[in-house]
Amino acid sequence: MPRNWLDDDHTGARIAHHRKLAGLTQRGLAQRLPYSYSLLHQVEAGYKNASPDLVSAVAKALHIDVTALTGQPYMTELQQDKLDSLIRPIREALDLYDLGADPDLTPRSTEQLVAAAEGLCSQVRATQLNKAAATLPAVIAELTTAAHRTPSSELWQALASTYRSAHDVTVKLGFYDLSGIALDRMDWAAQRASDPLLGAVRQYMRALVYFREGEHTIGLRLIGAGHTILQQAPRTAQSLAVTGQLHLGATVIAARAQDKDNVGTHLANARSIAMQTGEQGHVHWLSFGPANVSVHEVSANVEMHQYGQAIENAAKVHLPNGWAMSRRAHFYVDRAHAEMETGRHEAALTSLLQARRMAPQQTRYHSGARETIRRLVHARRKTPDTLDNLAAWIGA
């Protein structure tokens, strides 16, 4: 066990810190949660994993942001990955939206800018976060100027897509304030593009913000708003894919709320739509289809603490060739969580290593992966070198 396992840099310690700031005892806080005093005690001491739903419940009870408890962003690791210096230019680029065209800027052609926006999406899906973060500010600046000078649906769509990439990069690195701003900018551009599919995707992504915060009711209302926006779009394979993705978003939100009936309904709706669409990997980069339905079912199992069922369902998942590395890695993190909770520690380590190979930066900054690694370290009297290396890599 690393000597710094029980230091002040784990989620349980941060829960204890903010609980004390609120003037609450452990029993006092436990009374405000749908969790036992015993579990809270063990989490604060670092002996049990702080699950995402417990973290969101604590944040809600203490009236603080989830990031105060998760400790994101991880500045030491960001500095090691040379990502910290890339955040400020993104922040500045997000402020350009209402300044009009930059007189000192000569943007590339519309075709080249659309290709640049697509390239950013591709880099994010491949979890090449350094490349995407470095390129984002310039592409946002060019598209903003081009869209103001010669407005067109194509340019506004490309700008909305680039804002979406800004959201994806910043949320993966833990800068949730910036990810929220990026979603607001995405809405601003999507309205000018008159693209209901983009508007619905934006509502889906907003709903996932509330999923992280544990505000299940608001999250499901945002999903409903996304369905309403889609009524403006013709029925096509693309609009069906977005509809299905909205149902998948509702599935995991309902799962965190432990609403099994809603989980079953939304999952069944998504599966029915996926049978009609097949794999749709390039509808605003959503990767909707049968594979994503199966992966979300595993996520829902984990959220509802059905770990044995999660492992059983994970064994049936077949990920298509060319599927986004970001989605593949997320699946293996969920799988590792279920394996760890059922005592399959070697299997959990294998799954985490697989996630790391596929998407190293995403896995390094994934709060669920970090907590699972910490839990594995604590559970082992003698940790193998691979686990020691993994723990050191995340800063445990």
Rank of each mutant, 00 (worst) to 15 (best):
182 A>W: 04
176 Y>K: 06
120 L>R: 09
107 P>R: 14
183 L>P: 01
121 C>N: 09
164 R>W: 10
182 A>M: 12
221 R>F: 15
202 R>V: 10
191 Q>H: 14
148 H>G: 00
108 R>C: 04
233 A>G: 09
164 R>T: 05
208 L>Y: 12
139 V>W: 12
165 S>G: 04
177 D>K: 12
128 Q>T: 01
222 L>N: 00
108 R>V: 05
235 R>G: 03
137 P>T: 11
216 H>V: 11
121 C>T: 06
206 R>P: 00
210 Y>E: 09
134 A>D: 12
214 G>Y: 07
219 G>R: 01
126 A>I: 01
143 L>Q: 06
157 Q>Y: 07
221 R>L: 09
103 P>V: 11
148 H>P: 00
135 T>L: 15
119 G>E: 07
214 G>N: 07
196 P>I: 04
219 G>I: 03
203 Q>N: 05
169 V>S: 08
122 S>E: 10
133 A>K: 08
101 A>E: 15
219 G>C: 07
121 C>D: 07
193 A>T: 04
223 I>G: 03
105 L>N: 08
223 I>Q: 11
231 Q>P: 00
168 D>M: 05
186 M>D: 02
228 T>K: 14
215 E>L: 10
177 D>W: 13
198 L>Y: 14
235 R>V: 11
156 W>F: 14
139 V>F: 07
158 A>D: 00
165 S>I: 01
133 A>D: 03
116 A>W: 02
226 G>M: 05
235 R>Y: 13
120 L>K: 02
201 V>R: 12
150 T>F: 06
108 R>A: 15
118 E>Q: 12
103 P>Y: 15
109 S>Y: 13
204 Y>K: 06
185 R>T: 02
129 L>K: 03
219 G>L: 01
174 G>Y: 08
202 R>L: 08
142 E>H: 08
230 L>D: 06
134 A>V: 06
170 T>Q: 07
234 P>Q: 12
183 L>A: 00
199 G>N: 11
